[in-house]
Nucleic acid binder design. Structure first.
Lengths: 116, 116
DNA sequence: TAACAACTTAGAGCATACTCTAAGTCAAGC
DNA sequence: GCTTGACTTAGAGTATGCTCTAAGTTGTTA
């Protein structure tokens, strides 16, 4: 179950560089180290990093994810809920925007077809 | 109808800095200058920059927008169509992703409510 | 004519998010 | 014992997209 950064990297699909970077900026807590000073991670770390990746892919900046992770670590449920609630609102707005951009792009494309 | 960078900036909602930057990286053609060396723009420039802004807001990187603008300038309809077609595919993929992220976020939120 | 705003340029600086480099340590296999 | 691969650190470099600074010119208005 416990793994070093190499396996953790493969399972999370983030490079070791990126994982250390996330630790450096405080997004991830300082990982425990084994006797040779190598970072060790477990399933809980993997669940967290995967959720972090999901938040990141959905457009949340690392600074905000950092605040989320901190609130999560401190069991501050109300802040976690607030951050996710706001995130949901933004995602819905993005959804509306994208629909609009799809429409506009389609129109532009059909105008182009006509002018041929 | 012709205007200097200040008014062009207000009408396009881009700063003069940004407009000059776009010109510098070749996204916009070198603007014509009046007798005092000030850039002059017209309605066609405004239409183009507004479409550029639309592409940018919908996630197209400046380098790709640059290629779009060049193809557009050279009346290369097939390339314009190709770029927009690909963009449409990406937007649709984004739409699917966002729907997924909305679902996941909603689930996370309802899990949090239960654990209260 | 003097102040003031708007414009010009080249180039530096900034924010975000990595990504890589250098120099070194450590454990396992031949 | 030595190579190999995975790991460590601090810090430099990269890409994108601005954003600002400095030093100067030009046009309008009181």
């Amino acid at each position: 179950m416990p793994m070093k950064i190499g396996q953790f990297s493969r399972e999370s699909e983030l490079s070791p560089h990126t994982i250390r970077y996330y630790e450096k900026i405080g997004l991830l807590q300082k990982a425990d180290k084994d006797d040779s000073g190598h970072r060790i991670y477990d399933e809980a770390d993997l669940d967290l990093i995967n959720w972090v990746t999901c938040l990141k892919k959905s457009g949340m900046p690392l600074q905000k994810i950092k605040r989320y992770v901190e609130a999560y670590r401190h069991n501050n449920n109300s802040e976690v809920t607030e951050i996710l609630g706001l995130h949901l609102v933004k995602l819905k707005a993005q959804q509306v925007d994208i629909e609009h951009y799809i429409d506009v792009t389609k129109k532009k494309l059909s105008q182009l077809k006509k002018s041929n």
